[in-house]
Structure formats: C-alpha cells, structure tokens
Design a binder for these strands. Structure first.
Length: 103
DNA sequence: ATAGTGACTGGAA
DNA sequence: CTTCCAGCCACTA
C-alpha cells in the first residue's frame, strides 16, 4: 500500500491501514514499517501521523532522515516541523473496485 | 496466560 | 489553535 503513495505526497498511518483493509489498526502499519530492513525500497518516509508530524523520536536520526527524504521530494515542513496534510495528503484514485462496478 | 509497550487516533479539555 | 488521555490491539518478554 505504501508503495502506491506518489513522490512528494504523504499519507497517515490510519489512512494506510484503512486502504489496506486494516481499519482501526494504524499501529499495525507502524509495526510493519518499523520492521522494514534498512535496504528496503518501500517509501516509508511518506507515512506520517494524523497530526502531520514525523512519528519518530524528535531530533533523532530516523526522524531527521525521514524529514530530509521528504523535503528532498518536495514536501514542506513548517517551523514546528509539521506538514500540511491539506496540501500534501495523497488522495488515491479509486482504481481497484471496492466491490462491484455498476454498468 | 499476564502484563507492558508502542513509527496511532479521535475527542475532550 | 494546542495538549492530554483513554481506547486500541498486535507483538514481545
């Protein structure tokens, strides 16, 4: 699911969980990302919390790395280290039908 | 089996 | 607008 998030856009844990069919289990998304190998090609940096902030230890290595990766792809952070979800949230175009397409 | 711990969240304060 | 807090539930020891 995370691989679908386009460059320069972000999604929240809850959003990813929802889209992945794991409603109400955003933490599971966090566990999954936490378990990724350092060599992963999954764009994990594009997943942030519902407050628009990086959910890693503030000031820590991971925190800084995630922020740099995002800024590198055009995501802006305000002075308080927050991303405007209104501007950068990814809105997936419904492609794989939820149920059955009418017609 | 029990208890503690979160890469979380929505709602209350 | 912000911070706080209870609910959350898989995972681990």
């Amino acid at each position: 699911m995370v691989r679908r998030i386009p460059r320069g856009r972000v999604a929240t844990y809850g959003q990813v969980a929802e889209l992945a069919g794991l409603a109400r289990q955003p933490r599971l998304v966090g566990y999954a990302l936490h378990a990724l190998p350092s060599t992963t090609t999954v764009p994990w940096q594009r997943v942030i919390n519902a407050r628009g902030m990086v959910s890693l230890r503030p000031g820590g290595d991971g925190w800084l790395r995630q922020r740099l990766l995002l800024e590198r792809e055009g995501v802006l952070f305000d002075a308080r280290g927050r991303v405007s979800l209104e501007k950068f949230r990814w809105h997936p175009s419904r492609r794989w039908p939820v149920k059955k397409v009418r017609k």
